[in-house]
Design a protein around this nucleic acid. Structure first.
Lengths: 110, 110
DNA sequence: TATATTTGTTATACTAAGTAGAACAAATGC
DNA sequence: GCATTTGTTCTACTTAGTATAACAAATATA
């Protein structure tokens, strides 16, 4: 048991954010590239797809296969999008942290 | 190997935040209480201390034992504080997320 | 048309992070 | 003394994160 719907892991959070950001371009390799460039997070493609599968299993994302493109090797992509539940958990996650930051005494920030 | 100094787990992040917030009151039971009240995160005391030990081992916190207090059962506490490295990783963590939020297209937020 | 190259996902085995529950320790109250 | 309270440590386990390799389907070009 204990498939906790109230919180998400660290990589899960970053990937949900990138899915919202990338929209129709949210598929494995593109997510991995942005994880590296925008989040300074260097992970292998296996790590990305593992997390993507977990998120879908939890109901935080859905996915569908696009058609193949005309560029060389351009086979169909599995494109992910975030669900309402995913949005909710992602926003709650950020809210908690923003609130905690506000409660840190000034003097501790230096 | 691979004791990654570049990122921290989800619970590690919350606990580092609470250590900064609680200052001289940052010890196991108090952290657990605030995790519940301020972060809606219900975990056992074993989970808190496990994470605390991991953070110290990584160099993100230090701890020292306070003296016992005069209240009933008030034995000495192990009080944690964040190190410069801990502050750095915590701030970087939040920065990345704040930046990603900014890059999400307006229309996706509704 | 076969075979090399490219873009992409899936499978497998493993390490690290998160978790519960109970044991243990030291203080005060009576 | 011994019950109660506050606190940490120990042990065993599940979930999240990770690397590496296998697999699949597309185009390019000979």
């Amino acid at each position: 048991m204990h498939s906790n719907k109230l919180h998400i892991g660290e990589l899960e959070e970053l990937i949900l954010l990138l899915i919202m950001m990338l929209q129709e371009d949210a598929y494995g390799l593109a997510i991995r590239k942005n994880l590296h460039e925008k989040a300074n997070r260097k992970v292998t493609i296996g790590a990305v797809h593992g997390t993507l599968n977990r998120l879908e299993k939890k109901g935080f994302t859905t996915s569908e296969y696009s058609g193949a493109t005309e560029i060389r090797g351009g086979r169909r992509k599995r494109v992910f999008s975030i669900t309402a539940a995913g949005k909710k958990v992602l926003m709650a996650s950020q809210d908690v942290k923003v609130n905690l930051w506000k409660q840190i005494p000034e003097m501790a920030l230096k």
